[in-house]
Amino acid sequence: MRPDVRPDWRPALVRSVTLRHDRVRGLDLLVLPERVVVLRGAAASIVALCDGERDVRAIVAELERRHPGAPVADEVPVFLDRLRREGWLR
């Protein structure tokens, strides 16, 4: 894991950000004040696990279970760090 993402961090969306699925367009979205971010690939399934209860280790373990062989342990902490730096995760 990246040194700047602690494995015991319990990420959660900040209050002003919500995860939504647009059924009409078939897209997963992060809805922010005055902005919408389209999530691609497995991003929504990662964000959905950021409930403030699971730590990064548990999120990685769950995704490794769902996606055997995928480079989850390398990529998920980087993705979470990016969302945190954007101010979308606490």
Results as ranks from 00 to 15, higher is better:
37 V>C: 04
40 R>F: 11
52 G>S: 08
70 A>M: 09
77 P>G: 08
7 P>Q: 07
35 R>V: 06
59 I>M: 14
29 L>S: 09
3 P>I: 14
73 A>R: 15
11 P>V: 02
51 D>W: 02
86 E>H: 06
35 R>Y: 04
90 R>G: 04
57 R>W: 07
60 V>F: 07
32 L>Q: 02
18 T>G: 08
71 P>K: 15
32 L>K: 01
16 S>I: 09
4 D>E: 06
67 H>A: 14
12 A>I: 05
87 G>D: 02
62 E>V: 11
17 V>S: 09
62 E>H: 08
33 P>G: 11
54 R>D: 01
29 L>V: 03
56 V>H: 00
16 S>T: 10
29 L>Y: 01
54 R>N: 03
58 A>D: 00
89 L>M: 12
36 V>D: 10
89 L>N: 02
74 D>Y: 12
88 W>A: 11
21 H>Y: 15
33 P>A: 15
23 R>F: 10
7 P>F: 00
18 T>A: 13
84 R>D: 10
7 P>L: 00
27 L>R: 14
77 P>Y: 10
1 M>G: 14
38 V>D: 09
42 A>D: 10
34 E>R: 14
23 R>L: 11
27 L>Y: 12
28 D>G: 14
35 R>E: 12
50 C>R: 02
65 R>S: 12
72 V>W: 02
8 D>Q: 05
8 D>E: 07
45 S>R: 15
56 V>P: 03
58 A>K: 07
68 P>E: 15
30 L>C: 04
87 G>T: 05
6 R>H: 13
69 G>F: 03
61 A>P: 00
20 R>P: 06
88 W>S: 09
66 R>F: 02
11 P>N: 13
16 S>C: 09
84 R>P: 00
66 R>N: 11
19 L>H: 01
65 R>E: 13
37 V>A: 12
82 R>I: 04
9 W>D: 06
35 R>F: 08
90 R>M: 07
57 R>K: 08
79 F>Q: 07
70 A>N: 11
44 A>Y: 08
61 A>I: 07
56 V>A: 07
59 I>T: 04
46 I>K: 10
82 R>K: 12
10 R>G: 05
7 P>D: 09
69 G>K: 11
14 V>Y: 02
29 L>N: 13
49 L>Q: 04
59 I>V: 15
58 A>T: 04
1 M>R: 06
86 E>L: 11
23 R>T: 09
12 A>T: 04
86 E>W: 08
34 E>Y: 08
86 E>F: 08
39 L>W: 05
49 L>G: 05
60 V>W: 03
55 D>E: 02
90 R>L: 08
65 R>Q: 15
62 E>F: 03
